[in-house]
């Protein structure tokens, strides 16, 4: 039994369901995976409580939702960490296994890590600079420390709300600026309210599917291999599908009239500086463990030197 906050019918849920069916076939019905999408089992903290009580065996949650369990889970969301997909691919090859180990130490077996996509700054007012942003009412998800610290470093006092309240917030004007992926902006209907988009990847969002280690170890070795293999196959599909979905959603947003603003080199450097300071603050707050962060920074430096 795996619970998620992702809505039924989303790419993530569809691919997981498909993987579940393949597992059923591969294990001749010995392993059946049931999914509870759309938050019917409660929010992130409730889902984790229920895993510990044994009502659920696993969860499909995003990095920021899982950061309450394991700090490094949302390390890819460090602001302006990546510049493009190529960098993401190179880093994840090295760092994903470290994150898996981190979860194992917390008692969870990671079935897959998948890219949800780049989050962009989208807003009702025209945001072209830090000063513009400071005038906005910026939403951050509740308990998302990275987003909160990032915007604070940018001189903004963000407004934390649960995801479920964000759309109402946009409608009532409680918030007017959000950072999210293009697909999510459309899926959550936020695109009907938003007018502008800053074309500079703000942060990279990942989703994890993980099982309670105890439940996982109860399966026979062959069944464990089948479960791992099918979720890995599903993960490859999700990564590819999300990338093209986000591309399409980005274009769709432009078509319905969102104005895209591409910061020039000078402005981009200013944004990156905010990101740098946010990271320093996060490191000072011990938001991440040193080895994982070191691995990312080392690999990124190598990658950029090679270019």
């Amino acid at each position: 039994k795996i619970a998620s906050l992702a809505p039924d019918g989303s790419t993530w849920m569809n691919e997981m369901r498909a993987a579940g069916e393949r597992i059923d076939a591969a294990t001749e019905g010995r392993v059946k995976v049931k999914f509870y999408p759309g938050g019917v089992m409660g929010n992130d903290t409730t889902v984790l409580r229920k895993i510990r009580l044994g009502q659920l065996q696993g969860a499909a949650l995003t990095g920021s939702e899982l950061s309450i369990l394991y700090k490094d889970a949302q390390i890819y969301s460090v602001p302006f960490l990546f510049r493009d997909d190529a960098e993401v691919d190179a880093i994840r090859k090295v760092v994903d296994p470290m994150l898996r180990e981190g979860f194992t130490a917390k008692g969870f077996h990671v079935l897959s890590i998948t890219g949800v996509g780049f989050a962009y700054l989208m807003s009702v007012p025209d945001v072209r600079s830090k000063t513009d942003l400071q005038k906005g009412k910026v939403w951050v998800p509740q308990n998302d420390t990275i987003a909160e610290i990032t915007f604070r470093e940018g001189g903004v006092e963000p407004i934390p709300l649960p995801l479920s309240d964000a759309f109402t917030g946009l409608q009532t004007g409680l918030i007017d600026t959000v950072a999210t992926t293009p697909t999510a902006a459309i899926a959550l209907q936020w695109h009907t309210k938003l007018k502008h988009l800053v074309d500079m990847p703000l942060s990279y969002v990942v989703g994890y599917v993980m099982l309670d280690q105890k439940a996982y170890m109860k399966l026979s070795e062959a069944d464990r291999a089948a479960v791992d293999a099918e979720f890995a196959k599903g993960a490859a599909n999700i990564d590819a599908a999300n990338r093209s979905d986000n591309q399409k959603a980005f274009e769709a947003l432009q078509e319905i009239g969102l104005k895209v603003f591409k910061p020039d080199a000078e402005e981009a450097a200013l944004w990156r500086d905010v990101g740098k300071r946010a990271l320093d603050k996060l490191v000072a707050d011990k938001a991440f463990t040193a080895p994982v962060l070191g691995a990312i920074e080392g690999q990124l430096a190598k990658q950029r030197a090679a270019e």
Partner: peptide, 24 residues
């Protein structure tokens, strides 16, 4: 119901606590 399904009944308290999660 939860007892018949073989769950730890603490789940009922966890569910009740979700009262504090409903927005608005």
């Amino acid at each position: 119901g939860f007892h018949a399904a073989g769950y730890d009944l603490t789940v009922v308290a966890v569910e009740f606590y979700r009262l504090s999660e409903l927005p608005g």
